[in-house]
Design a protein around this nucleic acid. Structure first.
Lengths: 213, 213
DNA sequence: TTCGCTTGAATGATCGTTCAATCATGCGTA
DNA sequence: TACGCATGATTGAACGATCATTCAAGCGAA
């Protein structure tokens, strides 16, 4: 009944690495079998009888659910922005530096034109949840008078966005890192701008922090 | 028969669309020939005798150079941030919405593990130039006393970054658009935060706008 | 005819997948 | 205990399909 628990996950891991390296079309069953140290590609069909595409889905979904578990950020809800925002930013940059997360995201992005359904749960569990929490947090801080009123959906996107070039810099494009700030430097400057820009006492620049369409 | 003057570019365009849809490994010479309305895949080898991979490079580089021409932003150098930043942001969002640019970027990102050399010139001519100009612009505005002193490299990245989730929202992940702000709303809020955060008169929150490592 | 261009057919390689045979292991039974 | 055997797991070989690429022949125009 229960065989050695490693075989299936061994194949899934090898498949994910091959797929994330070469894409669904570029990776071959043979190369996956070799990376999994199998003596024959046929063995893959014992564990995944439905073939290559289903193996691709299984490998991707395994990593999706594995990366889908986020710590509950509720305890941060009442923390002042000077404390909460660096915590969120640091957690975000740490996550964005995870090699598996990067591989998964790039893979799903590359296959998105042919398999749009795979990207959806990742977006829903990842960016959408983060932005949703951050927006609620900003709203709460506005209530508490610690931040000036503003469109917190846009504020949440702006805050996360400020970190993206930095996350990409030492992850996707090493050229961006040349002559660029370190993570700590960038975080300090970005958070400083964001906090100063949302200080409750200062008068606003645009005059309208509410959308009025 | 007089061959249309566009034969070569016709193949290059079809190849780019096929490659950006299916990737280098997923696209086939036959499918490219069909998309280019050729009666035989063999004709591709008359114009690109070195085969599929060279056709891929040629198609990618053609789009890279085509998209590589940016208007000279020098005239903006002395404009006040209240004017220049919306202009830059609007231009950035417009460019990010261009379907060809998105296809090209996604293609190069997908093939980056095996062809890292292709991504370099894009990064150099695109993000690196934009960030370089924006950093210089912020530096100039600090000189003029219109912005408070800060790490302008981080400031440039933060500003461009603030727009990225919005650019991605209606481009890569339609889910992000649900219940999200419009481009204009997001731009107004983000630029407002950025300008307020760098106002020269207001006192700073963190106290250190200079990195001190 | 000559030359640039086009085409259908063919070639060899590689791919995903199937299949029959074999090994490993535990279990019921004598 | 010893034996036979069912079942899960593994393997090498093979099949058909599809791929990139080549080639020889055909086409129109100078």
């Amino acid at each position: 009944m229960e065989h050695e628990p490693g075989r299936r996950e061994q194949i899934l891991d090898a498949a994910f690495e091959e797929f994330s390296d070469k894409g669904l079309a570029g990776a071959t069953i043979k190369s996956i079998a070799q990376r999994a140290a199998l003596k024959s590609p046929a063995l893959i069909y014992w564990y995944f009888p439905e073939g290559k595409q289903e193996l691709f889905y299984a490998a991707a979904e395994a990593k999706i659910t594995f990366l889908g578990v986020f710590k509950d950020p509720e305890p941060l809800m009442e923390a002042p922005p000077e404390l909460a925002l660096p915590t969120i930013a640091s957690a975000y940059l740490t996550f964005a530096a995870d090699p598996t997360a990067r591989r998964l995201f790039r893979l799903l992005l590359a296959e998105a034109p042919r398999h749009p359904g795979l990207l959806e749960p990742v977006v829903a569990r990842g960016p959408l949840r983060v932005l949703g929490f951050l927006s609620a947090y900003l709203e709460r801080q506005v209530e508490l008078g610690r931040l000036r009123p503003h469109d917190t959906r846009a504020g949440a996107r702006a805050f996360i966005g400020m970190l993206i070039p930095q996350a990409l810099s030492h992850v996707l494009m090493p050229q961006l890192q040349v002559d660029g700030p370190t993570d700590a430097e960038h975080m300090r400057t970005a958070i400083g701008i964001f906090l100063d820009g949302l200080k409750p006492d200062g008068r606003e620049a645009g005059g309208d922090s509410h959308d009025s369409h």
